[in-house]
Measured scan of single mutants.
Amino acid sequence: SKWSPSQVVDWMKGLDDCLQQYIKNFEREKISGDQLLRITHQELEDLGVSRIGHQELILEAVD
């Protein structure tokens, strides 16, 4: 995926409302499409996504 960080942010805006709070962290870390495809629970935790349910929603959406 050749998504830029801004495309990742646009994609996140289409996800569940409960995930919108994390967008600024993804933006700050400039998460690209390639990074998103390989993202782990630990990396999500580092991005402030501490709730497992929220991590799962992001990982499922990526899949």
Results as ranks from 00 to 15, higher is better:
residue 1 S to F: 11
residue 1 S to V: 14
residue 1 S to E: 08
residue 2 K to G: 13
residue 2 K to R: 07
residue 3 W to H: 02
residue 4 S to R: 06
residue 5 P to T: 15
residue 6 S to C: 09
residue 6 S to P: 07
residue 6 S to D: 15
residue 6 S to G: 13
residue 6 S to E: 13
residue 7 Q to W: 02
residue 7 Q to E: 14
residue 8 V to N: 00
residue 8 V to Y: 00
residue 8 V to M: 02
residue 8 V to G: 01
residue 8 V to I: 05
residue 9 V to H: 02
residue 9 V to D: 04
residue 9 V to E: 07
residue 9 V to C: 13
residue 9 V to F: 03
residue 10 D to I: 08
residue 10 D to L: 08
residue 11 W to R: 03
residue 11 W to H: 03
residue 12 M to A: 04
residue 12 M to F: 12
residue 12 M to Q: 00
residue 12 M to D: 03
residue 13 K to N: 09
residue 13 K to E: 07
residue 13 K to G: 10
residue 15 L to G: 04
residue 15 L to F: 05
residue 16 D to V: 04
residue 16 D to Y: 04
residue 16 D to W: 05
residue 16 D to C: 03
residue 16 D to P: 13
residue 17 D to C: 13
residue 18 C to Q: 11
residue 18 C to S: 14
residue 18 C to T: 09
residue 20 Q to I: 08
residue 20 Q to A: 09
residue 21 Q to L: 08
residue 21 Q to S: 11
residue 21 Q to E: 12
residue 22 Y to A: 01
residue 22 Y to R: 03
residue 23 I to N: 06
residue 23 I to S: 08
residue 23 I to Q: 07
residue 23 I to D: 03
residue 25 N to V: 13
residue 25 N to D: 12
residue 26 F to Q: 02
residue 26 F to R: 01
residue 27 E to H: 07
residue 28 R to W: 04
residue 28 R to F: 06
residue 29 E to T: 10
residue 29 E to H: 14
residue 30 K to L: 09
residue 30 K to T: 06
residue 32 S to N: 15
residue 32 S to Y: 08
residue 33 G to P: 01
residue 33 G to D: 01
residue 33 G to C: 02
residue 34 D to P: 11
residue 34 D to H: 10
residue 35 Q to T: 11
residue 35 Q to C: 07
residue 35 Q to A: 12
residue 36 L to F: 03
residue 36 L to A: 00
residue 36 L to P: 00
residue 36 L to Q: 01
residue 36 L to N: 01
residue 37 L to C: 11
residue 37 L to K: 11
residue 37 L to D: 08
residue 38 R to Q: 10
residue 38 R to D: 10
residue 38 R to E: 08
residue 38 R to S: 13
residue 39 I to K: 05
residue 39 I to G: 03
residue 40 T to H: 04
residue 40 T to E: 05
residue 40 T to V: 01
residue 40 T to A: 05
residue 40 T to M: 01
residue 41 H to W: 07
residue 41 H to F: 06
residue 42 Q to S: 11
residue 42 Q to Y: 01
residue 43 E to K: 14
residue 43 E to P: 00
residue 43 E to W: 05
residue 44 L to I: 00
residue 44 L to M: 06
residue 44 L to K: 02
residue 44 L to E: 02
residue 45 E to N: 14
residue 45 E to R: 14
residue 45 E to K: 15
residue 46 D to C: 09
residue 46 D to S: 13
residue 46 D to V: 11
residue 46 D to N: 14
residue 46 D to A: 13
residue 46 D to R: 15
residue 47 L to W: 04
residue 47 L to V: 06
residue 48 G to H: 02
residue 48 G to C: 03
residue 48 G to S: 04
residue 48 G to Q: 03
residue 49 V to N: 00
residue 50 S to A: 11
residue 50 S to I: 05
residue 50 S to M: 12
residue 51 R to I: 15
residue 51 R to Y: 15
residue 52 I to C: 10
residue 52 I to N: 10
residue 53 G to Q: 15
residue 53 G to C: 13
residue 53 G to T: 15
residue 53 G to K: 15
residue 54 H to E: 06
residue 54 H to M: 02
residue 54 H to V: 00
residue 54 H to F: 01
residue 54 H to R: 02
residue 55 Q to M: 05
residue 55 Q to V: 07
residue 55 Q to H: 01
residue 56 E to C: 10
residue 56 E to L: 10
residue 57 L to R: 09
residue 57 L to D: 03
residue 57 L to H: 06
residue 57 L to W: 00
residue 58 I to S: 03
residue 58 I to C: 01
residue 58 I to Q: 03
residue 59 L to V: 05
residue 59 L to K: 08
residue 59 L to S: 04
residue 60 E to D: 14
residue 60 E to Y: 05
residue 62 V to T: 05
residue 62 V to A: 07
residue 62 V to R: 13
residue 62 V to F: 01
residue 63 D to G: 15
residue 63 D to W: 07
residue 63 D to S: 15
